[in-house]
Amino acid sequence: MTIAAEQEMPRSKRRSSLIRSPQFSSLVILIVLLAVFGIADANFLSPLNISNMMAFLPELGIIALGMTLLLTAGEFDLSVGAVFGLAPVVVMLLVQNGGFDIGIALLAGLLLCIAIGAVNGLIVTKIGISSFLVTLSMLLVVRGAALYITQGFPLKSWDQPGFFVTLLAGSFNIGTFRFYTSLWWFISLSLLAIYVLHYAKLGNWISAIGSNRNAAVARGVPADAVKIWLFILTSVLAGLAGMISAFRISAASPVAGTGYELEVIAMVVVGGTALTGGRGTILGTIVGALMLRSIRNGIVLIGVPGLAYNIFVGVIILAMLILHALLQKNAARS
């Protein structure tokens, strides 16, 4: 073998491993979907529609970032949708009925999210109950609390312009596109998550814990603490997304975010993160979030009856997962 050939090998190997990676296949499918929707309905790629999608995208996307890290560490959180609903409701109640300053109310909301995440994490790690059961119960507790304290009625949200509204739900125009500040939140949090998972020491720990917890613990990695902090992070991100949504539509509903937990998990696994832990990709999650958002939007645009569209969403998710499984099998064989 010549030296040139030896140097050539790793590069082509790297290229083929990139092509075979789950986030790449998700990206290809996203592009195909965008093209199909774009051809089927010219309005799909119009500035108005893109602006619309970008307004919704960050709200679920932000939660999906936390969920990706949590899934990579081998746990998941079903209570995010309920926290998405409860956080703004509590903040608004404190402001409207308690007469608190909006800043203090937001701080209280943040502390509440931290507490919910910490309880999830402590029960999962210290008592050793599966996160499925713990966070399913937490979903009921949190959603129930939101319904009870509001008596089931939506609250008018904070609509006076000010620092916090601008920070979370301000909007700006770039050409004919109209974007919300939430998009900046999503982009910066994504970059941060990419850094943490793939380049920081903590990311190495998160992947190791999800891949083989005993091995990580045997190397002195504080697995329980890492998991607890990830539960807290996911809860806080769900609360943040809830606040962004409530500010944007100027209403805090106790049923907001119902079903979001499954949609978020779908985004994450469609992007290529393994439900069993150990393998996570933030880029894949961003692709997954874009994909689910454009499916929901595009399907309505091309005229699929509203009541039928979950069928399409479900079928497309299933197809993605089958594709990932086949690729995985293929990679294992070669």
């Binding site: 190495n204 992947s207 190791a208 990580a216 393998r279």
Partner: peptide, 13 residues
Amino acid sequence: APDLSIARNLFLG
């Protein structure tokens, strides 16, 4: 940890 590279496993922790 099977999902990590050899290098990352060698220095885990």
